[in-house]
């Protein structure tokens, strides 16, 4: 059972089904956010449905781009034997 579930996420045979599942989940998550009641919000963005999805996506891209920039252009990444 466990091995089957793990295999579903690893085996290339299920590639297409994984994509379908992923897109269904994304749509579901996005849509349900519009249905959730918001009686108490701390910040204005908390009242915008779909904000979390947008913020999550932007955060992810920002983190990858900014970190890789710091690593490559900023000189943080060095050869493995740098300290040898």
């Amino acid at each position: 059972m466990i091995a089957k579930i793990v295999n579903f996420f690893g085996d290339t045979a299920y590639r297409k089904r994984r994509w379908i599942l992923f897109i269904v989940v994304l749509v579901l998550v996005f849509v349900t956010d519009f249905l959730a009641p918001r009686e108490h919000v701390e910040f204005f963005w908390d009242a915008i449905p779909g904000w979390a999805a947008l913020f999550g996506f932007i955060s992810c891209v920002l983190i990858i781009v900014a970190s890789k920039f710091l690593g490559h252009q900023g000189g943080l990444m060095k050869d493995e034997d740098y300290y040898e």
Partner: peptide, 24 residues
Amino acid sequence: AAHVTGSLGILMFTALGFVLLLRH
């Protein structure tokens, strides 16, 4: 409800970013 859907929104769309930028 809003906390659950909000958290899932952040996480699943992070996953979308991951899938799109995987090569990097």
